[in-house]
Every structure is written in C-alpha cells, then in structure tokens.
Design a protein around this nucleic acid. Structure first.
Lengths: 339, 339
DNA sequence: TTGTAGGCGTTATCAT
DNA sequence: ATGATAACGCCTACAA
C-alpha cells in the first residue's frame, strides 16, 4: 500500500516471522510448507503488496517468462488491412497464455529499431524469440541462434539459416490454384507476384512458373506483375499486365488483397470475373469471402501454424539440444465464384 | 562466438587484465579511463562477444530502459482498418527511439491477459507504462500509479484517476462540427455515437447533445445511433436512425469509419450526400479523404499527441515527484465535400 | 519442514 | 585512473 520502496522477500519474511527461504517457497508454490505457515506468509504478502522482483529472479533462474514476437515491419505495414498479423498474434497469444508466458511484441521496420531489438533479445530480456514476416536474408535469427537464444521463424527464412521455421507449402498451393484454372479451360494465366525479398513472395512466383510450364503453357514475362501483397499494389500490377498485351483469361494473385485490387481494375476495364478472367488469390482472408464475386483462394491455416510456431519454440526452450525441426503445412484450395 | 555460457564482466576483465570495475566503466562509456586500457577492454569485449546481462544490470540500477504500451484490446480489434493505433505507435516509437528506450507492445483484450500485463509491469519489467484505448473504469493505471510505476494514458480515463493523460478536446471538435452543419442550414442533425465505455465515445455524444441544444435544435433520441467506431457498426446505426423516423438532414459520426458505413447506407437508401444529408466524421483518417464524397471530419493530431504522451512519461520517469499534468489538444475541422 | 548461506552479474562507493 | 568490495533481491543446495 505504500507508494515507493516496494517490499522485498526479506520484509515479508520478517513480517511473517519466517526465513526468506520459506517465503520464497510459498511464493513459488512449493508443497513442502506447513499450511499454517503458508497462510501466514500469504497474509504478509497480501498486506505488504509484495511482488517478486523480476530482475533479481531472472538473475538467478536465467529466465524471464516472456517471449518476443519480432515483426521486421513498420507499424503502418503491420496494421494494414491484411489480417495476417492479427491471426498470427491470436494463435501465438493463445498458446503463450496457456503456457503462462508473456508476449512481447516488437516492430523493427527501421535499421535502428532492428538493432535495438537485437540488443533487447541478446541482453536476455526474453527466453525466446519468434520472427514473422522476414525480409531478405535477415541475419538476426542466425545471430541469436549462435548466441544460444531459442529462435523460430514464421515463414522460411531466405538464405541459409540455423533457425527452424513453420511455413505453408507455397508450391503446393500455387500448383493447385493453377491446375484449377487450367481445368476450367484457361490458357493464358497471369500472376501478380508478391515481394521478392520474402520467401513467400519468391515461392509463389516460382510455383506459378513451374505450374504453368507443367500445364504445357508458355511462361510469358508479360503476364507477371509485381506487388507487395497490398490491395493498391495489386491494382497497379493488374493495370500493368493489361497494358502489356492481350488480357489474360486466368489470374493467380499471390495474396487475396492483391487479387482484390486486381478485381477492381478488371471491372474498370469491363472484364467480367470469372467469365473473361478467372481469379484465384492466396491466404483465404475474410476479405476474400466478402469480395464481389467471392474469391477462390488458397487457404493456409495461419492460426494453427502460429500455435505450432509457439509450441515448437517453447519446446526448444525446454529442450535446447533437441534436433532442429521445421514444419510445412499443406494448403487447401477454396473454390468460390471468382473462378 | 561460443554458443552457450555467455561471457560475464568478470571474463572480460580477466582477458583484458583489468578489474571488473574498469570494464564496467568502459562498457558504460565513462570518460575516466585511459585510452590504452579502454581499447584493450573493447577488444576483449569484441573477442568474447560480451553483452551485459540486463537482469543483473537492472537489479542494481532499478531500470530496464524499456517502456510498455498497453492496449486493452484484442489483437483483432487493434489490427482493424482503423489507422488510429498505427499512428499512436509511430509517434510513440519515434520518441522512444530518440530516447533510446525499447517499446514493448502488449495487448490485453481478455481478463487473463489483463492480469498478466499487470504482473509484468508490477514485476519491474518496464520503467513506465502507457495506456491507449481504455475501456470502462479500468483500475490498472491507478494500481500501477499507487505502486510507484510511472503511468500515462492516451485519452482521458473514465472515473477518477491518478494518472495523467493526453487527449483531444472532444467537446470542442463536436461543437465545431455541429456549428458547421447548422451554418449550412441543417436543422435535423443526427449522430452515430461511439462506444459508451470509452471517454472518447461518451464525450463526443455529450458534445453533440450540448451543441445541438445550443443551436436551439431539439435533441431527439431517435436521432442517436450507437456504434463501436467500426464501419459495420456505423452502417447498422445509420439503418436504425433511418428506420426510426424522418431522415435527418445532417449527421455527425463519432468516427470516420462509422461515417463511411453510414455513407454506404445513405446511398443505398437513395439519399444524396451532402445534398440530402450532410455528413461529418471524426479522426481525419486517410479513409475520410478517400471516401466518396470526401468526408468532412474533425482532425486530431494523433501522432503529435503520441509524441507528447511519450515525452510526458519519460519526464515523469526522470522526475517522479513533479506535479501531474494532463494535456488536451485542440481539434480542427477539416471541411470536404460531404457537408 | 524450515533455516543458513552462497551466488547470480552488475553498478557504485570507497580507497588507493 | 584503477581496483576492492559491498550491495541489488532472489533462488536453491545443503544442513539441521
């Protein structure tokens, strides 16, 4: 109840008339404490408003009971209308809550904040680190791994990496999407690719090339537009593709939002979906369902993946010497009216 | 470079052939160290890959160099298409970066996570706490204040509170909006109110009542719809208002998103904006500018407020016994085509 | 079951 | 300018 000078274990011990060790036992839920004493200690804790000092505690336990989720993005990007991040955070949050760990969210969109986050993790503020939405060959996960800090990535890191990851099978998803387009008779299938500094962007584009070639169709670079997963970039890419030559009769967009942007542009150009152009997206976001027409898309179990991500990290923390294992989830094609 | 067993100050001292105290001085940038020794120490630090242990450090300094931003919301809500949170985070992030502090973002949408966040703060993980988007009479800020933890709120807390806050003058903003509507001849001015468990929601509704009465118009409860700041809730509220009786000729929505929802519904009902109904929003979000027609709205300097929020908190941390001062920013009516 | 005592890795106050 | 040395608050063998 006092304002300053938070009480210590020592103070509680004095008040309860026992030793610090006993108080510590009670506070940490040890069973081997007499009921009467336990009660006296708890009363003292209550009266003094005692809360363990985390710094002192983790100095000896080497644990902080908190986990960082690092998003190498600016706040504006993280808080876009893309519901990917919230889904990740929900999944992670749920598992962390169950494990009684605190989630610490950190954005690192700039070089300076990236550095700061590194220092934060290295200084031992957290027991483990999760990465999502990584760009380029970010060295940070590897650095942390080498320092012995448990790390896991959502999405395969680009370049060699010692960090395990959880991801969806992008190739499989794209293959299914393109097969579906081909099956409905489409022969001129365009793609709007995602950012090429992210593995998801790369893989979905490579997957498109493979799938188109595998279907016996020509891979024309005029049919490739580039975006950054956002709606506006999808619209721009669609304009570009349309400007480049004959309109396609099929489109695979590497994200639902880009597909939505494309949908708008197609409408402006008087092209009917799916009659003139069949469109398939990726993510199975809520926006896909609400699109007009509702969007065929590749579903990835984001929340499930986030849970796995978390559980895998917690397991690594508990079990640092177990072999590194990554996990790749199968996607699922959700067919709606846009194709 | 070794994986486990991070080096300590002691190890660096041995390697450099000096005492721990000297190493500590070098690491913390004390000037009173001979250049040669400083260099030797830095070399040792480099070679060993030494990083100070934060727990040990804050055990003695009583500081963590990090600040929490607590959002008592679920992830889904925080990551809506409302760009309010990103703006806050940008402002806070910028000032914190300048002060070389780490931002720790915590969502506390559930009772359990709310508790956890409390424990986190009380345990001394952070040097100070900022709250944004508070609902109801949340006791947490007060609790932390009483424990001597520096606290500040974005938006006036509901109920009595010892915590200082930074806010916009909601009353003034609404008054300007309503005056503007009245000046253009509107006599039947409706409102879509925000959530009534938030001071922003309450104040904007109360402000509307005052302003309407002050203009000599009748305050009809049929002209009041309720939403939760989101687009969908705005649409629902608009439907309700239209169903309740004669359509209004003016509308003040307590958020831009709700105004956008209302715009869509008005269009569906064949009502022209601004010809039949003049509409004013609140927030001056980007969505307001992109609306059709572009939305007249009350601008609040969110990013500026976030910076002030941060600076005020940092000042309280440095200066705990200074008197508590809150700050209220003036809003500004931005007139566009919707009114 | 309870208490004693040592140590976790730093910083800071003294001497020197 | 540098080096002992005492905290900081807690956990955890080990002893009793």
């Amino acid at each position: 109840m006092v304002t300053r000078e938070r009480p210590t274990l020592e103070a509680v011990a004095r008040r309860a008339g026992v030793s610090r060790a006993t108080v510590s036992r009670v506070v940490n839920g040890s069973t081997s404490v007499a009921a009467a004493i336990r009660e006296a200690v708890n009363r003292a804790v209550e009266e003094l408003g005692y809360v363990p000092n985390q710094a002192a505690r983790s100095l000896v336990t080497q644990r902080t009971e908190s986990i960082a989720l690092i998003l190498p993005e600016t706040a504006s990007r993280v808080f876009s209308d893309d519901l990917f991040f919230p889904a990740i955070i929900r999944g992670v949050g749920a598992e962390l809550e169950a494990a009684d760990k605190q989630l610490v969210l950190m954005m690192a969109g700039s070089a300076a904040s990236h550095d700061r986050v590194e220092r934060y993790a290295v200084a031992g503020h957290v027991d483990g680190v999760m990465f999502a939405s990584m760009h380029g060959a970010d060295p940070l996960p590897g650095t942390l791994v080498r320092l012995g800090i448990p790390v896991i990535c959502s999405g395969r890191p680009i370049g060699p990496s010692e960090a395990p990851y959880v991801d969806v099978d992008h190739f499989g998803g794209v293959a299914a999407a393109v097969r579906h387009l081909v099956a409905s008779g489409r022969r001129r299938i365009a793609t709007i690719a995602g950012p090429q500094d992210m593995s998801a962007g790369q893989d979905r584009l490579t997957g498109w090339r493979h799938a188109v070639r595998h279907a016996g169709l020509a891979v024309e670079e005029d049919l490739v537009g580039y975006g950054n997963f956002t709606r506006a970039s999808g619209a721009r890419a669609m304009e570009q593709i349309l400007a480049a030559g004959d309109p396609p009769d099929g489109l695979f967009a590497a994200s639902d939002l880009m597909a939505l942007g494309a949908l708008a542009v197609l409408a402006e150009h008087g092209l009917r979906v799916p009659h003139d152009v069949a469109v398939v997206g990726f993510d199975d976001s809520v926006a896909a369902m609400e699109a007009r027409p509702p969007l065929t898309t590749v579903h990835q179990p984001v929340e499930q993946m986030a849970r796995t991500l978390t559980l895998t990290l917690l397991d690594r923390i508990a079990n640092p010497d177990a072999p590194v294992t990554s996990q790749v989830y199968p996607p699922r094609l959700v067919i709606r009216e846009s194709s």
